[in-house]
Protein backbone atom coordinates (compact mmCIF):
# COMPACT_ATOMS: atom_id res chain seq x y z
CA UNK A 1 0.00 0.00 0.00
CA UNK A 2 3.00 2.29 -0.07
CA UNK A 3 3.74 4.58 -2.95
CA UNK A 4 7.22 3.70 -4.10
CA UNK A 5 9.37 3.30 -7.20
CA UNK A 6 6.84 0.80 -8.57
CA UNK A 7 5.01 3.91 -9.71
CA UNK A 8 7.88 4.78 -12.04
CA UNK A 9 8.25 1.18 -13.14
CA UNK A 10 4.57 0.97 -14.01
CA UNK A 11 4.70 4.21 -15.95
CA UNK A 12 7.67 3.03 -17.99
CA UNK A 13 6.03 -0.34 -18.60
CA UNK A 14 2.87 1.43 -19.64
CA UNK A 15 4.62 3.63 -22.17
CA UNK A 16 6.55 0.69 -23.60
CA UNK A 17 3.32 -1.26 -24.02
CA UNK A 18 1.56 1.71 -25.63
CA UNK A 19 4.48 2.25 -28.00
CA UNK A 20 4.52 -1.41 -28.99
CA UNK A 21 0.77 -1.44 -29.50
CA UNK A 22 0.92 1.72 -31.59
CA UNK A 23 3.77 0.44 -33.71
CA UNK A 24 3.07 -3.26 -34.23
CA UNK A 25 -0.50 -4.08 -33.23
CA UNK A 26 -2.88 -1.33 -34.19
CA UNK A 27 -1.87 -0.46 -37.78
CA UNK A 28 -1.91 -4.00 -39.27
CA UNK A 29 -5.27 -4.85 -37.72
CA UNK A 30 -6.81 -1.56 -38.79
CA UNK A 31 -5.48 -1.88 -42.32
CA UNK A 32 -6.81 -5.43 -42.54
CA UNK A 33 -10.18 -4.18 -41.33
CA UNK A 34 -10.16 -1.37 -43.87
CA UNK A 35 -9.20 -3.73 -46.66
CA UNK A 36 -11.95 -6.13 -45.76
CA UNK A 37 -14.43 -3.28 -45.60
CA UNK A 38 -13.44 -2.26 -49.11
CA UNK A 39 -13.60 -5.87 -50.30
CA UNK A 40 -17.09 -6.30 -48.92
CA UNK A 41 -18.22 -2.99 -50.37
CA UNK A 42 -16.82 -3.96 -53.77
CA UNK A 43 -18.49 -7.36 -53.58
CA UNK A 44 -21.81 -5.80 -52.69
CA UNK A 45 -21.49 -3.30 -55.52
CA UNK A 46 -20.62 -6.10 -57.95
CA UNK A 47 -23.62 -8.08 -56.75
CA UNK A 48 -25.86 -5.08 -57.20
CA UNK A 49 -24.46 -4.52 -60.68
CA UNK A 50 -24.99 -8.17 -61.58
CA UNK A 51 -28.56 -8.01 -60.37
CA UNK A 52 -29.18 -4.92 -62.42
CA UNK A 53 -27.65 -6.52 -65.48
CA UNK A 54 -29.77 -9.61 -64.98
CA UNK A 55 -32.86 -7.42 -64.86
CA UNK A 56 -31.85 -5.68 -68.05
CA UNK A 57 -31.15 -8.99 -69.77
CA UNK A 58 -34.50 -10.35 -68.66
CA UNK A 59 -36.22 -7.27 -70.01
CA UNK A 60 -34.33 -7.56 -73.29
CA UNK A 61 -35.16 -11.26 -73.57
CA UNK A 62 -38.82 -10.49 -73.01
CA UNK A 63 -38.77 -7.83 -75.69
CA UNK A 64 -36.98 -10.16 -78.09
CA UNK A 65 -39.51 -12.87 -77.40
CA UNK A 66 -42.39 -10.50 -78.08
CA UNK A 67 -40.84 -9.29 -81.31
CA UNK A 68 -40.27 -12.86 -82.44
CA UNK A 69 -43.82 -13.79 -81.59
CA UNK A 70 -45.20 -10.83 -83.53
CA UNK A 71 -42.99 -11.66 -86.49
CA UNK A 72 -44.06 -15.29 -86.45
CA UNK A 73 -47.72 -14.27 -86.33
CA UNK A 74 -47.15 -11.92 -89.23
CA UNK A 75 -45.44 -14.63 -91.24
CA UNK A 76 -48.25 -17.08 -90.55
CA UNK A 77 -50.82 -14.50 -91.58
CA UNK A 78 -48.92 -13.74 -94.75
CA UNK A 79 -48.63 -17.42 -95.56
CA UNK A 80 -52.32 -17.93 -94.98
CA UNK A 81 -53.17 -15.01 -97.20
CA UNK A 82 -50.84 -16.24 -99.87
CA UNK A 83 -52.28 -19.74 -99.65
CA UNK A 84 -55.76 -18.31 -100.08
CA UNK A 85 -54.66 -16.33 -103.09
CA UNK A 86 -53.01 -19.40 -104.59
CA UNK A 87 -56.05 -21.56 -104.08
CA UNK A 88 -58.24 -18.87 -105.62
CA UNK A 89 -55.86 -18.54 -108.54
CA UNK A 90 -55.80 -22.27 -109.07
CA UNK A 91 -59.54 -22.39 -108.95
CA UNK A 92 -59.83 -19.58 -111.50
CA UNK A 93 -57.27 -21.23 -113.73
CA UNK A 94 -59.00 -24.54 -113.52
CA UNK A 95 -62.31 -22.97 -114.31
CA UNK A 96 -60.86 -21.13 -117.30
CA UNK A 97 -59.16 -24.29 -118.53
CA UNK A 98 -62.37 -26.24 -118.17
CA UNK A 99 -64.28 -23.59 -120.06
CA UNK A 100 -61.62 -23.55 -122.74
CA UNK A 101 -61.80 -27.34 -123.06
CA UNK A 102 -65.56 -27.24 -123.23
CA UNK A 103 -65.43 -24.49 -125.82
CA UNK A 104 -62.88 -26.44 -127.89
CA UNK A 105 -65.01 -29.57 -127.66
CA UNK A 106 -68.08 -27.68 -128.73
CA UNK A 107 -66.21 -26.12 -131.64
CA UNK A 108 -65.01 -29.58 -132.65
CA UNK A 109 -68.53 -30.91 -132.40
CA UNK A 110 -69.83 -28.03 -134.46
CA UNK A 111 -67.15 -28.61 -137.03
CA UNK A 112 -67.98 -32.29 -137.19
CA UNK A 113 -71.68 -31.47 -137.50
CA UNK A 114 -70.95 -29.01 -140.28
CA UNK A 115 -68.77 -31.49 -142.07
CA UNK A 116 -71.39 -34.19 -141.71
CA UNK A 117 -73.98 -31.73 -142.95
CA UNK A 118 -71.84 -30.85 -145.94
CA UNK A 119 -71.32 -34.53 -146.67
CA UNK A 120 -74.97 -35.23 -146.17
CA UNK A 121 -75.86 -32.31 -148.32
CA UNK A 122 -73.61 -33.53 -151.13
CA UNK A 123 -74.88 -37.06 -150.79
CA UNK A 124 -78.50 -35.92 -150.64
CA UNK A 125 -77.84 -33.85 -153.78
CA UNK A 126 -76.29 -36.82 -155.51
CA UNK A 127 -79.06 -39.13 -154.36
CA UNK A 128 -81.68 -36.60 -155.50
CA UNK A 129 -79.96 -36.19 -158.81
CA UNK A 130 -79.64 -39.95 -159.19
CA UNK A 131 -83.28 -40.44 -158.27
CA UNK A 132 -84.41 -37.67 -160.56
CA UNK A 133 -82.23 -38.81 -163.37
CA UNK A 134 -83.58 -42.31 -162.97
CA UNK A 135 -87.13 -40.97 -163.19
CA UNK A 136 -86.48 -38.47 -165.90
CA UNK A 137 -83.81 -40.51 -167.64
CA UNK A 138 -84.52 -39.34 -170.98
CA UNK A 139 -86.08 -35.97 -170.52
CA UNK A 140 -83.46 -34.38 -168.39
CA UNK A 141 -80.19 -33.46 -169.77
CA UNK A 142 -77.77 -33.31 -166.90
CA UNK A 143 -75.90 -30.59 -168.48
CA UNK A 144 -78.90 -28.50 -169.29
CA UNK A 145 -80.40 -28.70 -165.93
CA UNK A 146 -77.27 -28.45 -163.87
CA UNK A 147 -78.20 -24.97 -162.64
CA UNK A 148 -81.54 -26.15 -161.35
CA UNK A 149 -79.96 -29.11 -159.59
CA UNK A 150 -77.35 -26.98 -157.93
CA UNK A 151 -80.02 -24.64 -156.75
CA UNK A 152 -81.86 -27.55 -155.20
CA UNK A 153 -78.74 -28.81 -153.54
CA UNK A 154 -78.06 -25.38 -152.06
CA UNK A 155 -81.52 -25.25 -150.57
CA UNK A 156 -81.16 -28.51 -148.68
Amino acid sequence: MNINATLIGQSITFFVFVWFCMKYVWPPIMSALGERKKLIADGLAAGERGKHELELAEKRAKEDLQTAKAKAAEIVAQAEKRAGVMVEEARTNARAEGERLVAAAQAEIEREVNRAREQLRGQVGAVAVAGASRILKREIDAKAHNDVLNDVIAQI
Binding site: F17, F20, C21, Y24, V25, W26, P27, P28, I29, S31, A32, E35, R36, K38, L39
Partner: peptide
Protein backbone atom coordinates in the same frame (compact mmCIF):
# COMPACT_ATOMS: atom_id res chain seq x y z
CA UNK B 1 0.28 -11.77 -22.85
CA UNK B 2 -2.00 -9.08 -24.26
CA UNK B 3 0.59 -7.77 -26.70
CA UNK B 4 1.63 -11.27 -27.74
CA UNK B 5 -1.96 -12.26 -28.53
CA UNK B 6 -2.70 -9.09 -30.44
CA UNK B 7 0.65 -9.07 -32.19
CA UNK B 8 -0.01 -12.63 -33.36
CA UNK B 9 -3.41 -11.57 -34.63
CA UNK B 10 -1.92 -8.48 -36.28
CA UNK B 11 0.81 -10.48 -37.98
CA UNK B 12 -1.67 -12.75 -39.70
CA UNK B 13 -4.30 -10.06 -40.22
CA UNK B 14 -5.58 -9.90 -43.77
CA UNK B 15 -8.75 -9.03 -45.57
CA UNK B 16 -9.77 -12.69 -45.96
Amino acid sequence: VFLFLFRTAAKYANAG
